[in-house]
Simulated scan of single mutants.
Amino acid sequence: MADPADGVRSALARVIDPEIRRPITELGMVDAVSVDAAGRASVGIKLTIVGCPAADTIERDVREAVAAAPGVASVDLTISVMTPAERAALTERLRGARGRTNPFTPDSLTRVYAVTSGKGGVGKSTVTANLAVALAQRGLRVGVVDADVYGFSIPGILGLVHDGITQQPTRVDDMILPPVAFGVKTISIGMFLDPARGQGASTAVAWRGPMLHRTISQFLTDVYFGDLDMLLLDLPPGTGDVAISVGQLLPGADVIVVTTPQPAAADVAVRSGVVAKQTGQNVFGVIENMAGLPQPDGTVLELFGSGGGAEAAARLSEATEHDVPLLASVPLSVALRQGGDAGEPIVVADPADPAAVAISSVADRIAARPRGLAGRSLNPRPR
């Protein structure tokens, strides 16, 4: 006869830590398991830290999983916290041989997309957030770095701001676990402002170059994203310190340039793409946002003109000496704006909206080009 405790352990292997996104059995979170003759299962679970925000979810999922195991009539669950040595072992296990370094090097299998624009107000953050969620909807493992330190808005668009307070990440020693929204792991400077001191979602950050570079570097090294298929960065507008830092830290990144149809905006957008090329990045394509607004009579109201996206793509193709396509033209959409204000991206709230369809088409295009192993070191190690 099979040991009921083995069935409990198998059930626990299906319980996923909601922050780390790995089975709790792989994380050293299962302490002791036993099942007595009456079918009472005794299970010990060790949380990573005191006050773990995922504690309730983990406890619920463990109880449900154990109760469904063969031979279990009742569940006796004990919750404790890892010792410092156990936490240190966990962080070492998660980071692996790379340690506390930037995992998104050119040899990484994660595709990195830096979303940039020449000027502010073109909807770059809205495009980034919706594109990330659309990629997650396709079963990809996606992370977002809100690198727009001065104008951070990704947490609000993804519903991580409540009553003016931004959800904070969990710290496990020197490792940071990013909050997850709509399947997307997200990090932003807005998550580190202290609401107790009046710092909330509306707080301004006044930093200069070295602090900006250090912040972006720490987002890449200290935040545990796990094994990602895609990492998106929402860059600040223009060609300043952050754009240069991202070029230095992520030389293998693809760049998506967001512009509006207005020729003047497209002219400025081209500059951000040229800077990306100068720092060794690849200009992947252009997204034209705020295109024509469809009217009830079937006509299209072009509030911001037309042709800017195609013009930017053509000029970037010439400047970079390779084809830079116009990936999509996203029409003006009230639902798109409402979704951003409500913290529910339009690709979730109204996937049939023309703006959602346009953004989803870009996600389809990106999802179809996974990063391959050709030309990359596999770093084999003898066993």
Rank of each mutant, 00 (worst) to 15 (best):
A13M: 00
D17R: 04
R22I: 09
M29A: 11
A32F: 06
V33S: 00
D36F: 08
A37H: 13
V43F: 02
L47I: 07
I49R: 01
P53N: 07
D56I: 06
T57Q: 14
D61P: 09
V75K: 01
D76T: 07
L77C: 14
T78D: 04
T78L: 03
A85K: 12
G99V: 09
P103W: 01
T105L: 07
A114K: 11
G118N: 07
G120D: 11
G121V: 15
L131E: 07
L135K: 07
A136Y: 05
Q137P: 03
G139F: 04
V142M: 10
V144D: 09
S153R: 07
P155V: 06
P155C: 02
I157S: 00
L158I: 10
H162F: 11
T166E: 06
T166L: 00
P169G: 03
R171T: 13
I176E: 02
L177F: 12
V184Y: 02
I187C: 00
S188L: 06
M191N: 04
A196N: 15
R197Y: 08
Q199G: 10
M211N: 08
L212K: 12
R214M: 14
T215M: 13
I216V: 08
F219T: 10
G226F: 03
L231H: 10
L235G: 02
V242I: 13
A243V: 13
I244P: 03
V246Y: 02
V246A: 15
L249P: 08
P251W: 07
V257P: 05
V258K: 04
P261C: 09
P261T: 15
A264G: 07
A265W: 11
G273M: 08
V275F: 03
V275G: 08
N282V: 13
F284A: 08
G285W: 05
V286I: 15
M290P: 08
D297W: 09
L301S: 10
L301C: 11
L303R: 14
L303C: 14
G305H: 06
G307L: 11
G308R: 02
S329W: 00
V334R: 06
V334D: 13
A342D: 14
I346G: 00
A349R: 13
A349L: 04
P351G: 10
V357A: 12
I359E: 06
I359C: 01
S361Y: 00
V362K: 09
D364A: 04
R365L: 12
R365A: 04
P370L: 10
L373W: 15
G375R: 09
N379R: 13
